[in-house]
Nucleic acid binder design. Structure first.
Lengths: 245, 245
DNA sequence: TCAGTTTTCGACTCTCAGGCGAAAACCTGT
DNA sequence: ACAGGTTTTCGCCTGAGAGTCGAAAACTGA
């Protein structure tokens, strides 16, 4: 790889001798995308044009500007480069700092996890694409690890938070929601159980309306919505709690 | 405050025009400390000698060196400045990047959560001290938020991981463990329930030995130990899982 | 030996996740 | 209009496991 042959840049220090580093904002944007054979959990990737790792797929990223915090930087890069403004949830994932993770210049990176509803299908530039997380190409840098961390975080939070609101559109049927959860979690889910759990936690409510049934017949499905669209923890102390009474 | 009157340093950029930043490693070191009236959840603080925030209490911190990753940097600062080598658990907590969080110079900070067994009582330099988290002084920078984040993280993980091993010494009685959990979580815990839950999860095992009872009489207590001393998640999918069988 | 103290352990309750199957409500063909 | 197929809804059952309680066990000191 050509980048490895290049000499690293001289370390930059301020006038008190403290080292300073590039800082990049990274985005792990996940979506359960409706494909021909059902929902597929996918991640937004970008094909690099420049070394290092020219031609390899990588997470959307960019440098943090002097007057913005990292979360703002992530939103800015997503909005400007991918026209992705409808990120329903964004949270900090992890900061990576291995000295040679960027062979050209030391760069500390902070990755954010973003979730997009399955109804969203923004125009992508030709060098960007959604990739199924179950079948990723070789990724640049340490981005493979970041994607896996992001998927694990989302899967865990699907159990003990209301984060499903970020995967779903405003209204949906229970079958759709189950299919989305199955794609996101990677195993089968019972509609009955899903509805009961979310309802009991007061995260899910029927809108009162129903869909016309599809062309294949069947009972019309009620429409549901998530009651709140901000992240909340179901029960921070799943065990070892005082009797909730 | 004198720091606010100082002009910020000029922004440093490398030769391609990308801004670069100081990066500091921060440590939120928590311990349930045995005091006269039982265990008290405390955090290790440091009284600042220099502006900004001279005289205020702050988290142990220091700059990240050019050849180390942030986690290594945290361990190094703790070892050299506080002689704290016996941190039983250390994990990344959060990265903070508000542009003016350091009024003197823009500094991005990555905080780690460290846990120390209650038997550990390292020598501290005069400017360092353990502070009860329930009664903190005004902290420098945004460190108050970091402490609260750290406490919340530890409390959450006490429920669904085996992280208790990092609060306890190698061997302990169930009463001691309950007292430690109560101090850490801030509410009452039943010994019976605690023992059954940890045993069922195969996190806790009796050593076979017992303590001499204390000076106040009472049945001798069995000694227990944690079966594993690496962090493990009890059940990543507390709900919405396929039948575990 | 007795009173006091602390720990241990069995037993009970109850919440709630998970699964099953019948009934409801629609479609399309005939 | 009716039958057969399909999908959704809903009530019911089960079992795991958290939380509570109280009695018995095992020690100390008087």
């Amino acid at each position: 790889m050509s980048a490895q042959n290049r000499a690293p840049r001289a370390q930059l220090r301020d006038d008190s001798g403290v080292a300073k580093y590039r800082h990049e904002a990274l985005a792990v944007v996940l979506q359960v995308r409706p494909e021909t054979d059902g929902f597929v959990l996918s991640v937004l990737l970008w094909q690099r044009g420049r070394d290092p790792y020219a031609g390899r797929w990588a997470l959307p990223s960019g440098p943090v500007e002097v007057d913005e915090r990292i979360g703002t930087s992530v939103r800015r890069h997503l909005a400007t480069r991918v026209e992705l403004a409808e990120v329903a949830h964004l949270e900090q994932l992890i900061t990576v700092s291995t000295p040679n993770r960027d062979p050209f210049e030391r760069t500390i990176g902070t990755a954010y996890l973003g979730l997009v509803p399955w109804t969203s299908d923004p125009d992508l530039p030709p060098e960007a694409a959604w990739w199924p997380v179950a079948d990723l190409p070789d990724l640049a840098f340490d981005h493979d690890r970041l994607v896996r961390d992001g998927v694990a975080r989302m899967q865990a939070k699907l159990s003990y938070t209301n984060i499903g609101f970020a995967l779903a559109p405003a209204e949906f049927t229970m079958s759709q929601l189950r299919d989305a959860y199955e794609a996101a979690l990677g195993h089968e889910i019972s509609v009955t159980n899903l509805q009961r759990i979310l309802t009991r936690r007061d995260q899910l409510a029927p809108t009162g309306e129903s869909t016309r049934s599809g062309s294949r017949g069947g009972r019309p499905a009620k429409l549901f919505r998530f009651t709140r669209h901000e992240l909340e923890i179901t029960d921070p102390f799943a065990v070892l709690r005082p009797d909730a009474g």
